[in-house]
Design a protein around this nucleic acid. Structure first.
Length: 568
RNA sequence: GUCCCCGUAGCUCAGCGGACAGAGCAACCGCCUUCUAAGCGGUAGGUCGAAGGUUCGAACCCUUCCGGGGACGCCA
């Protein structure tokens, strides 16, 4: 007898159905209805949601995939498997989500979930709302996600900001999918650019023109203004590295500002790592040594090279320049060893599209150092083009022409901004018109979803006023009405959506789902009166369903870092 | 020249091997003595850049081409 489905093992009905299908298949083999199959030829069992609800709640294409190895018509195989599913559902109804089963050409097996299974799922939500939408992983990994990593030479721009949205979303989705995640920010606080920032601040302070290759934004003037007297005295002394001293001070101040901006967005990093520390702590040296031991390093033309060509690169790469200065690539490989030394199973980098050229070489170096290349992955984020009135606006931190993250958040708010980026794929190029975004922020679908949540909160308040309380558990018969049937099928999907999002490492599915759930709820609201003192039995059952919907909406929004207001 | 990403409804974008291609906005028509109209219902709108191929089945996979963006440093 199959075990009763356990939501702490797998909260998805889809997963339970997959097991049921596998059992039906095994049973068919055991009974001789179907022959055993060489495991190499055996397809995996897949369950998906039909686009057309008339086809049921879930479908499997297993019969079609078995047609070839079995050399039998898919419909025939489907019939056998469907009979098995139906037989189990009749014999032990509590162990399978299957309600009714149909077979449809060319060989789909369509399943409609049992009300009992749906009611149980609502029970899980009511019992433990906090974990609803979190999916345990069969193999939890320690994942390091490095993102943003903008050097602290100016405020975060919208260009950098996309990485912040994408990276944080990825982390949230991975966490919901059962992975352990560390958010990491990498930056350089002692390089040429920081020196130039210092020079720009000094020039402003002295009332001199800023060098052409310096930084020109308004924030430079603010820094010059805020420069502490004692630091300025130190820097202004004869023989002092004025730009270095002021630059380090300015960059730390800028970095703190970036941290505050990210905090405002709801992104908090677990760790900030400087490029300098990788050198100071010997990680770069050790990485180079590792490569040397592996025989992948050589000296030529006064420089030290990584034999990148042995890994398919079109040319070897310099690690230490002929002037003795390590390249940026040197820091990259040092960082890889440093990260792995902290016990991560996987390193994910969120990089701008423009870094794609460096992807292969860092991964190659990781492989050369003896790490699993597959555990080092870069997710490239497409550029955001900024347009105003249809014309592209060039953004330059040095020229001081940019829109900052703070400005965006001030204009359209965190929720609308998060939704905007969450609903778009990281690799899709975005044309962003700030004026349009401002105008459209009122029509942002996020409010549609939040409104559904607020509406439910209002219903629950109203119910409490008249003394109606949601029931603690639903009976299958509570779901027989058409509005209930539609709504429950939608709310029960959250863990599946999360599972898919975690697998795809993208959050768009969650925004699409939240919209659909909100839409289904709004229809429910139209068709089903919830608070009705004249019919307390039906009322309290509907209240439970609606409360479960509220939890589901809140958790979906929470996964996106978006608030779920009690009223609007 | 090599490599990467993108090309789906008027606009912004989902869908990325399944059963009639979706949403939001924009357009048009209707719905508030009723739990929040930031809502609901309906109409209209697409040869999924093009052509071949693989598959029982392709917007989705492969090839080529066209169009847009980006990368190819002893830059960071």
């Amino acid at each position: 007898m199959p075990p009763t489905p356990d939501p702490t093992v797998d909260p998805t009905l889809r997963g339970h159905l997959r097991l049921a299908v596998a059992r039906a298949w095994a049973a068919a083999i055991a009974s001789g209805a179907l022959p055993a199959l060489d495991p190499a030829e055996a397809p995996d069992v897949r369950v998906e949601r039909p686009a057309n609800p008339d086809h049921g709640d879930a479908a499997t294409n297993l019969a079609m995939r078995l047609a070839k190895p079995y050399r039998r018509p898919p419909l025939e195989i489907a019939r056998i498997l469907a009979d098995g599913l139906a037989a189990e559902a009749a014999a032990t109804p509590g162990t399978t989500p299957v309600g009714t089963v149909d077979v449809a050409p060319p060989g789909f097996i369509n399943v409609r979930y049992a009300d009992r299974a749906l009611a149980d799922a609502v029970g899980w939500i009511l019992d433990d709302p906090m974990v609803w939408g979190r999916v345990p992983s069969a193999s939890p990994r320690n994942v390091n996600v490095e993102f943003v990593s903008a050097n602290p030479t100016g405020p975060l721009t919208l260009g950098n900001a996309r990485g912040a949205f994408v990276g944080d979303l990825l982390c949230r989705v991975l966490e919901a999918g059962g992975q352990r995640v560390v958010r990491e920010y990498y930056f350089n606080d002692s390089g040429t650019q920081v020196w130039k920032l210092g020079a720009s601040v000094i020039a402003t302070r002295r009332g001199e023109p800023i060098p052409d290759d310096g930084y020109h934004g308004d924030y430079v003037a603010e820094l010059a203004e805020a420069l502490p007297a004692d630091l300025w005295a130190e820097a202004d002394a004869p023989g002092a590295d004025a730009s270095g001293i002021v630059g380090r001070w300015a960059s730390e101040r800028v970095r703190a500002g970036i941290e505050a901006s990210l905090e405002h967005l709801g992104v908090r990093f677990d760790r900030w790592t400087t490029e300098r520390s990788l050198h100071d702590e010997g990680w770069v040296e050790r990485a180079v040594e590792r490569l040397r031991v592996a025989g992948q390093v050589y000296e030529a033309e006064g420089a030290t090279w990584f034999r990148s060509t042995s890994f398919g690169d079109d040319k070897d790469r310099v690690i230490i320049r002929s002037n003795g200065e390590p390249t940026y690539f040197a820091s990259d490989i040092g960082y890889v060893t440093e990260k792995f030394s902290r016990g991560f199973d996987e390193l994910i980098y969120i990089w701008g599209q423009d870094h794609h050229g460096t992807v292969a070489r860092v991964r190659n170096a990781a492989e050369a150092m003896g790490y699993d290349k597959a555990a080092v992955r870069m997710l490239l984020v497409a550029w955001v083009r900024f347009v105003r009135d249809g014309q592209e606006v060039a953004m330059s931190k040095r020229a001081g022409t940019f829109i900052t993250l703070d400005e965006l958040l001030a204009e359209i708010g965190v929720d609308a901004a998060r939704w905007f980026f969450a609903s778009r794929g990281p690799s899709s190029a975005i044309d962003f018109d700030i004026e349009l975004a401002k105008k459209q922020s009122n029509e942002n679908p996020v409010y549609y979803v939040q409104y559904a949540h607020a509406r439910i909160a209002s219903i629950l308040r109203r119910a409490a006023d008249v003394g109606l309380v949601p029931v603690g558990a639903l009976a299958p018969t509570d779901l027989e009405g058409a509005p209930e049937a539609a709504l429950v099928r939608e709310i029960v999907r959250l863990p599946e959506v999360v599972e898919d999002a975690a697998a795809a490492e993208e959050a768009q599915g969650v925004t699409a789902y939240a919209t659909e759930l909100a839409s289904t709820f709004h229809a429910f609201y139209r068709d089903a009166k919830v608070v009705d003192p004249a019919d307390p039995t039906r009322s309290t059952a509907r209240l439970a369903l609606v409360a479960a919907t509220k939890t589901t909406l809140a958790n979906a929004l929470g996964l996106l870092g978006i608030s779920a207001p009690e009223q609007m």
